[in-house]
Design a protein around this nucleic acid. Sequence first.
DNA 1: TAGGCCATCTGGTCCT
DNA 2: AGGACCAGATGGCCTA
Length: 143
Amino acid sequence: MKSRRPSCTDSGSESSELDSKSPEKFETVTRRRIAANARERKRMQGLNTAFDRLRKVVPQWGQDKKLSKYETLQMALSYIVALSRILTDAKKHNVPHRQWLELQFDCVQPENYSCLMRCDSATAQEYIHSLPSYQFDGCHGLA
DNA sequence: TAGGCCATCTGGTCCT
DNA sequence: AGGACCAGATGGCCTA
């Protein structure tokens, strides 16, 4: 748990004014503020849980360093585009879905992008930005 | 040490 | 009135 920075409810920036007016009012405001902080923490924890779940289903760069939130969103976006391309291409080439998907999913297995996992972050970023046009053509001969 | 990333607090706005 | 959501501010941690 990170240390909390001093808050106005803790240090009382607005407290002195409220306190002089009405102790009850001050207490109510403080209690509400503390409750709101707790709800906000819980909300953000939920958001982070969702990010963790997203990280698990999105291609990862390397094994140790986890994607930042921004990178996770970028990668998820690219990944979705790539997957929908697979479906679109399957229709276009009139290939039996099962056979097509097997070929395509072979190309998105970790061993097939392991070379990219070893790239430095700049290269990875460049790749991420180019991902909307995921190049599967080199992975198979059907396109 | 600077910069990136993150958690937390906070006040504003909208909705129920 | 109170909760949910959001964005800005702030400070801590980590890495190059």
